[in-house]
Amino acid sequence: MEFAKMNELRNLANQEGVIFFYNGYFSQKVLLAVGDTIKLKFQSEDEDRMTGKKVFSIFVEQVQNIIRYSNDTLTGDKEEGEMRAGMVVIGKEPARKKYYVSCANYVSDSAVARLKNKLEELQTMDRDAIKKAYREKMREETEEESKGAGLGFLEIAKTASEPIEFILQPEGGGKHLFLFKSYI
């Protein structure tokens, strides 16, 4: 990358209040290393302790989603040690003065309809409805497609201070790009 482009990237990140940006392969080890940095960053900030915990929580859910479901994998399906590609941005939006955690990753076309329905439904829910759905999901048997508890997006929606935002854009080659954002 040319220096001029690197500068552009840096300036853009500064304008957007970016604290952390990562684009590439994620693994549990990357999650742990970055998670540590985030914790330290929030401990040193003059922020309410719980804000840092919420940012951390949403970050973990988003990264574990990438590790488990991104269509771009280095390792294929494994019980442990999976590495899949995605992008995560954590920042404090200058205009809203709110923290955000955003991510982007490829998903297979076959996963799009289910993901879209799930997230659109979440967007229509208010706080009480989210908590109610969470309670119900906690009691259900785990869905077959799910490698976790199937609670990840509900957890994010419950933790976030505003409705989640997302787009799914077709990219060809059997995949869509999934972009997702949540405010703390």
């Binding site: 951390f56 859910e61 906690m138 785990t142 508890a149 990840g152 957890e155």
Partner: peptide
């Protein structure tokens, strides 16, 4: 702290 998979 625990993640959503641990909740289950």
């Amino acid at each position: 702290y625990f993640n959503s998979s641990s909740v289950k």
